[in-house]
Design a protein around this nucleic acid. Structure first.
Lengths: 260, 260
DNA sequence: GACACTTGTGAAAATCCTGTAAACGGGGCT
DNA sequence: AGCCCCGTTTACAGGATTTTCACAAGTGTC
């Protein structure tokens, strides 16, 4: 945001903050080069900050950053000015006095369209954790080359937990964010899926411990080298009955990490 | 354009004409379905045409045609209304009395961004995948010299998938990008076309497996040498009944690659 | 240590999803 | 009009996945 009207700025900042945006602000004209370096998603700008270079400045910003959501917010302005601005590449032009709520909504509207233009989907960036790799582009997790073979729900659960790595998430929160609606009282779905996940994780990456239980609260994702206590790794001749040793070791691991 | 203010409309029409736009106009609410059929680039709309269904109408239009440049132009309006509209998916909201020049400029600003989204994809470069070649210039795919004989939709589907090779695309995304508007809940068109494609692909290039199903999500295009499991190599004496072996092998292949 | 809860498990039951085939229906063409 | 080509809908069956249950096991308290 580039603007000098401190009142407007602070109100807007609070709103933006609440909406989860990361906001930067300056009262002077920032060189377009620096704007590029900032990797902004959107820019709210009062051309007045550029003094009588206003038009040139606008033009440079708009042409240098064609993908930036660019919204201008001025005091009095004429139709001709607005048209000129819009033609230059400005996406929306708001006139003060403006309601902050509307400013936010307009910036969002522009960003929305801008986002649709780019990569449609959300974060396609892979996450790494322990020796597993979570790939949103495939809705899958891998350990090396092997596919964990997660179902959609399993993947979404894992993805959510991994994104919030280190945080303890309550069941209600998890359910709300993965299932998309409120959890019914007494629903055990989350627990069941956590178990399925742990199974697949342990099967494919036994040397790490990923999901930790917090009694009475929920779960926390945090890859830690597995605390193998005792017996160890006779590379399990293909076909050996894994059941007993597996269940035991998983018990041990879970216990020792059911930290509180 | 949907509006009843004939004065405004005629002025705007003249301007639009001059700008080289092809303009359609109605004073009543046009059913969203028909809007789809019109293949509009932009829509200027006064929700008043929908009477007291205004919000529902806006919502339906915006969610059915997320790619349409949607600009609302109303008489008096409150901040709350504008915010609500913008949140619903409206791209810009103009309040009358409005200068036609500005209206035009705003529609252009929105369309510009929209065009940038689609524009990049105007790919006429041929794609290669497995032993098939996709040629946007002919709207066809070939294996060597033989033409797969795809219909338009089949081609567009294949083209989209191939461009996003390796990515899992959700049905909704596919539909949105191939059909151009939002998929109705329960629509199976995508599945049906995927089957048709697979049929033609398998018939003409049996040694590759191209389209993979991701249960509960969608499809992924990724050419892989067909996983012939077991039987093989009696080069099917020309004229042998292909039905049984064909259906069986396709079963096997699909299953083994319905990776997840 | 007994009690009141919580969480882990395994499996059955209920749902949902996809492949497939076939019926439908609009347009364009002869 | 009659036909053909294509895109859209429907119907169904077989699987895959998600939910639900009944219990066992574990945790914290008094």
């Amino acid at each position: 945001m580039l603007d000098t009207d401190s009142g407007f700025v602070t109100v807007l900042a609070k709103r933006a903050e609440a909406a989860g945006w990361q906001l930067r602000h300056s009262t002077g004209a920032v060189p377009p080069r620096d704007l590029v370096a900032m990797k902004l998603n959107a820019l709210l700008l009062d051309p007045a900050v550029a003094g009588d270079e206003a038009w040139e400045y606008l033009d440079r910003v708009a042409s240098l950053l064609p993908d930036l959501a660019l919204v201008v917010c001025t005091g009095r302005s004429t139709v001709a000015q607005r048209v000129r601005g819009l033609r230059l590449g400005v996406d929306d032009w708001i006139t003060k006095p403006a309601h902050p709520e509307e400013a936010i909504a307009r910036i969002e509207a522009v960003s929305r369209r801008r986002r649709r233009a780019r990569g449609e989907g959300g974060d396609a960036a892979p996450l790494a954790a322990g020796d597993l790799q979570i790939r949103p582009d495939r809705f899958q997790a891998f350990v090396g080359e092997v596919n964990l073979d997660l179902t959609r729900r399993e993947f979404e659960l894992l993805h959510l937990l991994a994104e919030e790595r280190g945080q303890v998430l309550e069941r209600e929160t998890i359910y709300q964010r993965v299932w998309g609606y409120a959890m019914a009282h007494g629903d055990r779905s989350v627990d069941v899926f956590i178990r399925k996940l742990r199974q697949k994780l342990e099967k494919n990456s036994p040397s790490w411990s990923y999901i930790h239980t917090h009694f009475g609260i929920g779960y926390r994702f945090d890859p830690e080298p597995a605390g193998i206590i005792e017996e160890e790794l006779h590379p399990a001749p293909a076909g050996s009955e894994p059941a007993s040793s597996e269940s035991i070791s998983s018990q041990v691991v879970h216990n020792s990490f059911t930290s509180r």
